[in-house]
Amino acid sequence: MVSYMDLIIVITIAFYLLSTIGYLAFLFKQQDYFNKTGLYLLIVGFVAHTIVIIGGFIKQSHIPVSNLHETLSIACWSLAGVFLAVQYKFNLKILGVFAAPLITMIMLVAFQLPRDPVQTQNVFSNFWLVFHIAAIFTGEAALALACGVGILYLLQERAIKTKKRGFFFKRLPSLDLIDSTGYACLVVGFTLLTIGLITGFVYAKTLWGRFWAWDPKEVWSGITWLLYAALLHARITTGWRGRRAAFMAIIGFGLLVFTFLGVNFLLEGHHGIFTQG
């Protein structure tokens, strides 16, 4: 059973890797079939990945987040899923050049990590926990894409402003499309992050009897949430967009990565168990 699972994980990574190659070929060659190939390979990888996740679910009868390997794997799976959704909605072809390598990299890192589940104490699987995890991961995936889109925006804006054009000018779509894609990612990501935080509070209340425990992860999540809230607020009230919004999306994601990983490694708290190696 375990070896089967390993095989599917390898297949997943192989397809993600091939997809990355397809997208890189698209970046340089600009032929649409490379883009299509990259997309289809990613879809196959995503399906294989889904099987891995379901397998983990069945084995543990619980969302498989009992160690860093599984946590990263789920984060990666969410990213692939959200990317496919964004791709379907906006057809921002070049985004695959960002997403596919990122997905592949996370999967490769995850693959290196030990896969024995860490004994969890005091964690009860219930509806709120599942909801909490699902919302947080999908939200983070969307915000990761918002960061990628932000990078694309900065590249294209620079190409236009400096009048040098060059490598990216031809290959990237219009600023308007990049900006609205980023905004959509941001709205979805922020909404899910909010839902994730709320369900987390509810879960904490049912488990520990209080909503907020000043756990470092909670604190940093709160800070991240405030940053994104400020960004969205500025956009809605004054039409804040463009370069600064792109910068904020990138900084926000940096903060998010810190909250996701850094807090667990550098600070102590009740989320640590999910990322112990």
């Binding site: 236009i160 219009s174 600023l175 308007d176």
Partner: peptide
Amino acid sequence: ELGRKIFGS
């Protein structure tokens, strides 16, 4: 062409 890169359409 530049306008299209800024506004899309």
